[in-house]
Amino acid sequence: MAAKPKLRIGLIGSGFMGKAHVFGFATAARVFDLPYEVELHTLADVTLAGAQAAAAGFGFAHATDRWQDLIENPDIDVVDITAPNALHKEMAMAAIAAGKHVYCEKPLAPLARDAEEMAIAAEAAGIKTQVGFNYLCNPIMALAREMIAGGELGDIRSYRGVHAEDYMRDASAPYSFRHDPAGGGALADIGSHALATAEYLLGPITRVMGDCVTMIDHRKDATGSARKIEVDDVGRAFLRFKNGATGSIEANWVATGRKMQHDFEVYGSKGALIFTGERFNELHFYNTDDATGRQGFRKIEASPDHPPYGQFCVAPGHQIGFNDLKAIEVAGYLDAIADRAPEPFNFRAGLRIQYLVETIQASAKSETWIATV
């Protein structure tokens, strides 16, 4: 068997998402028949000591405190960005100019106009891109979309989506990059997942009516000074879909007790689906064709019948996890780089989500419905 070509990865950032990306590359290499041999080449972080410690722990050969070193190194093929949101554009544009493929965690950029510039640059340069929306890689999510598209629910009438967590619940927690008014807030941070899921399942959203609310109006920054918070802690929107369905989404990062509520409900003329991210190996299906006295939501458990679950585990109901979804995302992206498949969720798709976020924010300010297509 011929040796596979190497694909050398340069990672920017070693926090929660940086680690998740490393798990994704490591697992994908062992689960899937990738078109490349993945090499973890260089890790960049804010301090050299931190970068060296993370590189040693993650298995990178080199470490640096200058992310520009990844851009300037001709050996690196893919620049993987898990830095704070406001830095994504500068890093991605530099990588694109250097002819490197770019894998960027969401959101693609704080502002839609920046995301558009990034998408146009990547397309013009022929660069393959990926934005990190790994919840869409869940085999159960693919099953739900298949059931909806196949007519098992009949005509889709309504949709409800929510992404709620409580990591900003504590009013004494400090001001962070997520509070940056240039593009922060719950709607941008986690509402982006709710919007991506809604369009993944039902297709284009055509109109929105937004409501964005700040619940904690001041937080202390690193110097101890009080900073006024201008972004939303809770963001909601009513939705109209191209297929005629109506719906809503909610983003809430002060939802006390919620750690990972990425949920959806889909209601059709013949059936319904319910999903919760806190039990994301399950899908609940109601079928109006069931006999009277036997109707009710029944649980469908993830299994090898829902690819690529079987490549992780041969036993139904034994479950895959968050980092496995990253591995599926990585495998799809590497197939795209090798021209074996289209890009699963490229910069153009990431731009679409940022555009929806900003349209909802504009609607909340104007208190009017706004068209999105």
Rank of each mutant, 00 (worst) to 15 (best):
K4C: 04
G15S: 12
V22N: 09
Y36R: 09
E39D: 08
A44W: 01
D45M: 00
V46W: 10
G50S: 05
Q52D: 09
F60H: 09
T64V: 11
T64D: 03
D65Q: 08
R66S: 12
A97T: 05
V102A: 11
L111M: 15
A119R: 01
I120T: 15
I120E: 15
E123F: 04
G126N: 10
K128N: 07
T129G: 05
V131E: 05
V131R: 06
F133Q: 08
L143H: 06
R145T: 09
R157E: 10
S172R: 06
P174Y: 08
P174H: 07
S176K: 02
F177S: 13
D180R: 14
P181I: 08
A182E: 12
L187C: 06
A196G: 12
Y200C: 06
P204M: 03
V208T: 11
C212Y: 05
D217R: 14
A226Y: 10
E230Q: 12
G235L: 00
R236L: 09
F241R: 09
N243W: 03
G244W: 00
G247C: 05
Q261D: 13
V266W: 01
G268E: 01
G271Y: 01
F275S: 00
T288D: 09
A291E: 11
R294D: 13
F297H: 15
I300M: 08
E301K: 13
G310W: 00
V314I: 12
L325F: 07
A327L: 01
E329S: 13
V330E: 03
N346V: 00
N346A: 10
R348F: 02
G350N: 03
E358F: 03
S363W: 00
E367N: 14
W369A: 12
I370P: 02
I370C: 09
